[in-house]
């Protein structure tokens, strides 16, 4: 092959042979990897065999009926609180960007209050409020449709938990949604206006779908965080995962095993949410990336292919 080959359009191009070099070895990395492996194995061995941890007890309670019901309550709380948070948050974000000082000031005040007080205090507040308020003339915005079949007291606690977690989340979501809306280029607003779209259409069809790209990742984090924060509801007698675990170990004194049971469930649920978040982000990246990032399956296939290719190269050396 000569350089002239590529210059002459008459002859077909021949692909030059790829470089085959011996790859650099990294003994330092191997040693540290070995140390990590040993430590991890030790920890795992201790964890699974130690009687104090009681892993077998933890496993025994994993699918205990009341624990599973508690997990259901955890999920319900998470979903309701996040839906409340997102709706309130978007509304507050639009209010904060309003030209009307009462609207933007009101939104600012809300965020200031709910971000400035601990969510635990807010939960206790909502839980205790019925004790001092004799008559509520404004209806609580939850219909009785999802009430569990348990006594009234539990209902009150659940509603209090939803209010506490949801209203608090609204303040955080407001800031996330505001950042998302502000991230959309002003030209988009102008283009929509020029086509005769009204404010609502512009917001719903043009601005928010683009803001999603910025809103989704932190919202995923908020959801994962919320899933864990719902455990605070145990302190106001809500029978969610941790609350149920506490009731059981209050009876049997198997504290650590039941905390392990609860942790396994929380880990499982947050892992599922992380996967969901990945695909959601991928969906809202449409249009902003020329090529979507690969799914884990595609990544795995790619990894195996690369590994095989490198083995084939080594074998050829």
């Amino acid at each position: 092959m000569s350089p002239a080959d590529t210059l002459d359009p008459g002859t077909p191009r021949v692909r030059p042979e790829a470089i085959r070099a011996v790859p650099v070895r990294h003994p330092g990395r191997w040693v540290s990897a070995a140390i990590v492996l040993v430590v991890a194995a030790q920890l795992a061995h201790w964890f699974f065999t130690n009687d104090g941890i009681g892993f077998s007890t933890a496993r025994h309670y994993l699918f205990d009926h009341s624990i599973v019901m508690g997990v259901g309550v955890t999920l319900k709380l998470t979903v309701i609180a996040m839906v409340m948070g997102v709706v309130i948050g978007v509304a507050l974000a639009v209010m904060r960007l309003s030209a009307n000082p009462i609207l933007s000031g009101g939104a600012w005040l809300y965020i200031w209050f709910f971000r400035g007080t601990p969510v635990y205090v807010q939960l206790l507040f909502w839980y205790s409020l019925p004790n001092v308020v004799n008559r509520i003339s404004l209806g609580i915005p939850f219909g009785p449709s999802w009430l569990p079949q348990d006594p009234k007291e539990l209902v009150t606690a659940l509603v209090a938990a939803c209010l506490g977690l949801g209203l608090n989340e609204g303040a955080y979501m407001a800031e996330i949604a505001r950042a998302g809306i502000l991230s959309v280029d002003q030209g988009q607003d102008e283009a929509a206006c020029a086509l005769g779209m009204n404010r609502l259409q512009t917001m719903r069809r043009i601005i928010l779908p683009q803001a999603m790209k910025v809103i989704i990742p932190p919202t995923g984090n908020e959801t994962i965080s919320m899933l864990k924060t719902t455990s605070l509801a145990a302190t106001i007698t809500v029978a969610e995962t941790l609350g149920v675990a506490q009731r059981i170990y209050g009876r049997t004194l198997e504290v650590i095993p039941l905390l392990v049971t609860a942790s396994i469930w929380y880990l499982f649920l947050t892992s599922v949410l992380s996967v969901g978040q990945y695909y959601l982000e991928r969906r809202y990246a449409r249009g902003s990336l020329r090529n979507l990032p690969p799914t884990p399956r595609q990544k795995a296939i790619e990894l195996v292919r690369n590994w095989q290719a490198s083995r084939a190269r080594k074998a050829a050396l």
């Binding site: 283009a191 020029a194 249009g287």
Partner: peptide, 17 residues
Amino acid sequence: ARQDIGMVFQRFNLFPH
């Protein structure tokens, strides 16, 4: 009123999504 007036922008302003 804007529905009857078309506008083309310097930076296109297409809806990317």
